[in-house]
C-alpha cells in the first residue's frame, strides 16, 4: 500500500471536502471538466507556496484544455482561507482534515510518517478517470510541464 499512487486508468475516488469554510466540493460535481488534483504537504511551506503560485498563473493555460486545478492538503479550511488570501490564489484548496488524510490515502498520496499529503499530481478526465499521475519528492516542486503535456495528450487522443 505504501508508496504507490493511483495510476492512469483508475477511477478517481470521489471526495466531498470543504473548499471554503462554508462550502464543500465533490469531485462528481466537476463531471464534464478535466480536473488537476494537486496534493501537497502543507500550506505556507516554501516549496508548496512556489508550486501553488505557479499553478495560480498557469490556470489560463490549463483552462484552454477545459481543466481546472484544485489543491489539497491536510490543513484546515481556515488555514487554507488565510493562505489563499495571503497568496491571492484563485483556485480551490480542499481541506483533507477530518478524518485526517482520508482522501489522500484513497489516492495513495498520504505520508503516514509525517501525517501529511505527499506531493502528488493527478489529471482526471471528463468522466472521472485518471489519465496521468506523478509523485514528486516532497522537497521538489514538480512545476506544470507534465500537467500540460498530459492535457495535450488527452486532446490528441480525442481525434
Amino acid at each position: 500500500m505504501a508508496g504507490s499512487i493511483l495510476e492512469k486508468g483508475a477511477t478517481a475516488p470521489d471526495f466531498d471536502l470543504h473548499c471554503t469554510p462554508d462550502q464543500r466540493l465533490k469531485l462528481h460535481d466537476l463531471k464534464g471538466k478535466r480536473v488537476i488534483l494537486a496534493f501537497y504537504p502543507a500550506d505556507w511551506s516554501p516549496v508548496c507556496s512556489d508550486q501553488m503560485a505557479v499553478y495560480n498563473e498557469a490556470r489560463k493555460l490549463f483552462q484552454q484544455h477545459n481543466a481546472e486545478v484544485i489543491g489539497i492538503s491536510v490543513d484546515s479550511k481556515w488555514c487554507h482561507l488565510a493562505f489563499e488570501q495571503d497568496r491571492h490564489l484563485h483556485f480551490p484548496l480542499l481541506a483533507d482534515f477530518e478524518p485526517k488524510g482520508e482522501v489522500s490515502r484513497l489516492y495513495g498520496a498520504y505520508n503516514e510518517e509525517e501525517g501529511q499529503s505527499k506531493r502528488a499530481l493527478f489529471v482526471i478526465d471528463e468522466q472521472g478517470v485518471i489519465q496521468w499521475s506523478y509523485l514528486s519528492p516532497d522537497g521538489i516542486n514538480p512545476g506544470a510541464d507534465g500537467i500540460l503535456e498530459a492535457l495535450e495528450t488527452m486532446d490528441n487522443g480525442k481525434h
Binding site: D50, Q51, A53, V54, E57, A58, L61, N141, P142, G143, A144, D145, L148
Partner: peptide, 12 residues
Amino acid sequence: DFESGIRSGVNG
C-alpha cells in the same frame, strides 16, 4: 515567455 517557461518545467 511565461508559457515557454511553464513548458520547460520552470517552477519558480
